[in-house]
Write a protein that binds this DNA or RNA. Structure first.
Length: 418
RNA sequence: CGGUUUGUUUAGACGGC
């Protein structure tokens, strides 16, 4: 069974979940005593790709075979819900674990639910779960506090994050510090961020590449690229070599502060020396190029990706689709949209929103509207943003009755106009 | 004894300030 679990794991990592599933079915028919572990591996893999319908199918099959879900199965499901923004569902399953006849929540369950709530901007609710876990004989650990600290920071409550971390001194580590440093950086509080680095050293924690990347990003986003570059030397001296992620941050930083030429030069250098560029590198430079009027070079980069063995992903395509729409080349954008489908890359809400906006801008609003149902068929929920764009589009071409219909549709879907 | 589940950095959309 252990070897089977490892084998299933290997198949999943090679992207052969289907084969893994088939294999489990094959084994089932032999007279082997199956346990839940290999199923957990497959469940995790399916959930990772957001394939929740297949997750449910597998869970049903397990039930049929008489394989009972264990605590890992439950925790994996909760994690899936959290990952795909379904906090309500995560919370529901958690409640079920508390009251129904199934495994009781453990540290990982509590931490996962807490993290989910924090990521959904519900830190106060997360704090209630923390109180619960104490009653349930679990003591919050550094992971629990890490989630809370991140949650506070993302709600702009950096002060509370700092207070919490100081109070729980013994339960912090490098990651907690990194989270706080990022929180400070996001609000431009660079001096305090650097102060925290000093403090972490005092307390015996050494900055890692995440720490440096976070600071580099902070300085870049403030337009202080020189100081960001200065950190590179420091990180090397302290035994952390810059990875491709570090350069990605700098390329994006240069682009976003209007220095595309420098970004492009750095990008070209990376093609020759240093860590090989990844799809984020390409996407960052592609986005920077077309946003600065250099769509042609951007398209060249897109085609250059395959030469480096890289595939454009949904973000890469979306960035370009948005760029083409912005210069009223919607037909080209649609062409690219078809190309991404052909390559097996699934559009997401942002992709649809970009294309809808592009079509509305050139007054093809009815056509844009048809994309809504297409999006829903692909499993995405409509958003307020996309309706706003359509309403605006209809109003601009004087079709107020259509705009009104959109409002009614929103109502039907429980979407509140903002 | 060993396999599966939890926290931190970087790329994409609309509007307001």
């Amino acid at each position: 069974i252990i070897h089977l679990t490892q084998f299933i794991n290997a198949l999943c990592q090679l992207g052969k979940a289907k084969k893994a599933w088939e294999f489990l079915n094959l084994v089932k028919n032999k007279r082997v005593c199956l346990t839940v572990a290999p199923f957990n591996v497959l469940l995790r893999d399916l959930g990772e790709d957001g394939d929740l319908s297949r997750v449910n199918l597998l869970l049903a099959e397990m039930k049929e075979m008489g394989i009972n879900p264990d605590i890992v199965t439950y925790n994996t499901q909760i994690r899936d819900f959290v990952k795909w923004g379904l906090v309500e569902e995560a919370h529901e399953l958690f409640e079920k674990m508390r009251y129904m006849n199934c495994p009781s929540p453990d540290m990982i369950t509590y931490n996962t639910v807490i993290d989910g709530l924090c990521k959904a901007g519900k830190v106060d609710k997360a704090l209630i779960i923390v109180a619960m876990m104490r009653l349930g004989d679990c003591t919050p650990d550094r992971i629990t506090y890490g989630s809370l600290v991140d949650g506070f920071c993302n709600e702009g409550r950096v002060h509370e994050a700092l207070v919490l971390a100081m109070q729980e001194d013994c339960s912090v580590d490098v990651i907690t510090y990194n989270t706080l440093i990022n929180g400070l950086c996001k609000y431009g509080r660079m001096d305090e961020a650097l102060g925290l680095v000093a403090r972490m050293l005092q307390n015996g924690y050494f900055p890692d590449t995440f720490t440096y990347d976070t600071l580099v990003n902070g300085f870049c986003k403030q337009g202080r690229v020189k100081e960001a570059l200065g950190l590179i030397g420091k990180m090397i001296r302290n035994g952390c070599s810059p990875r491709v992620d570090t350069y990605n941050i700098i390329i994006d930083g240069l682009c976003k502060t209007g220095r595309v030429d420098e970004a492009y030069n750095l990008f070209l250098q990376l093609m020759e020396v240093g860590p090989p560029p990844d799809s984020v590198t390409f996407t960052a430079i592609i986005d920077g190029l077309h946003k600065n009027g250099r769509i042609k070079t951007a398209m060249q980069c897109l085609h250059g990706m395959s030469e480096r063995g890289l595939q454009p992903n949904v973000v890469t395509y979306t960035s370009l689709i948005c760029g083409l729409c912005g210069i009223h080349q919607v037909d080209k954008a649609q062409h690219l949209f078809k190309e991404m489908l052909k390559k097996g890359c699934s559009p997401d809400v942002v992709t649809y929103t970009s294309l809808v906006a592009g079509l509305c801008q050139i007054k093809r609003v009815d056509e844009a509207r048809t994309l809504l149902s297409e999006m829903e068929n692909n499993g995405y929920l409509c958003t307020v943003v996309i309706y706003n764009i359509l309403i605006c589009g209809y109003c601009r071409i004087g079709k107020f009755n259509r705009a009104w219909e959109m409002l009614e549709e929103m109502d039907k879907r429980d979407l509140k106009p903002n």
